[in-house]
Computed example of a mutant assay.
Amino acid sequence: MNPDEYPEIKSWIDSYTGELDFVDFLNRHCTVGMWLSFAHLMNPEFVEVRGCVIRRRSYTPENFDDWYARLDGDVRRVESVLNRFVVGYAVNCGNTAEEDEALWDIARAVAYSWEAALGREFPLKRFDVSVLDTDDGPVVVFMQTAS
């Protein structure tokens, strides 16, 4: 999706004269804290525990231990449960076609970014990073590839 065509951004751009785009929209509406938060969403930190690679934000020892036990130490299954980002839970939006398309675009961008971050952090490991179509909308998930 072209961000300049998303209704909220297009309306803002159209209200000005000159050559503005979605980056100008971000510059006008986002604080340093928003930019920093976004940068860390797209480029997360990871922890490695018992062979599992988990997004730091999703890791707590108790929750990890619970899932590790429930799933009999299956690394891929543990990772697939803990390394999920439900875009619609994070992005406040309605239920229009444009918003649905935007959520999918955001999910794909997060997945591409996470794949690159995992590759930089763990160059000897391989990961499946995908966007799932769920009842909750697009969900980004990653796990190590099967050996």
Results as ranks from 00 to 15, higher is better:
Asp4Ala: 04
Asp4Ile: 11
Pro7Leu: 05
Glu8Met: 13
Glu8Ser: 12
Lys10Glu: 04
Ser11Asn: 14
Tyr16Arg: 03
Tyr16His: 05
Glu19Asp: 15
Asp21Trp: 05
Val23His: 09
Phe25Ala: 02
Val32Glu: 15
Trp35Cys: 14
Leu36Gln: 13
Leu36Arg: 05
Ser37Ala: 15
Ala39Pro: 11
Leu41Trp: 01
Pro44Leu: 04
Phe46Asp: 03
Val49Met: 08
Arg50Asp: 13
Val53Gly: 03
Ile54Gly: 00
Arg56Pro: 00
Arg57Gly: 07
Glu62Cys: 08
Glu62Leu: 09
Asn63Val: 13
Phe64Asn: 04
Asp66Val: 11
Trp67Thr: 01
Gly73Gln: 04
Gly73Ala: 10
Val78Arg: 00
Val78Tyr: 00
Val78Leu: 04
Glu79Ile: 08
Ser80Leu: 13
Ser80Met: 10
Val81Tyr: 02
Asn83Ser: 09
Asn83His: 06
Arg84Val: 11
Arg84Lys: 15
Phe85Ala: 07
Val87Cys: 01
Gly88Tyr: 01
Tyr89Asp: 11
Asn95Tyr: 02
Thr96Lys: 00
Glu98Ile: 12
Asp105Tyr: 12
Arg108Phe: 13
Arg108Ser: 08
Ala109Trp: 09
Tyr112Ile: 08
Ala116Gln: 09
Phe122Cys: 03
Pro123Val: 04
Lys125Gln: 15
Leu132Met: 09
Val141Asp: 01
Phe142Val: 01
Gln144Ile: 07
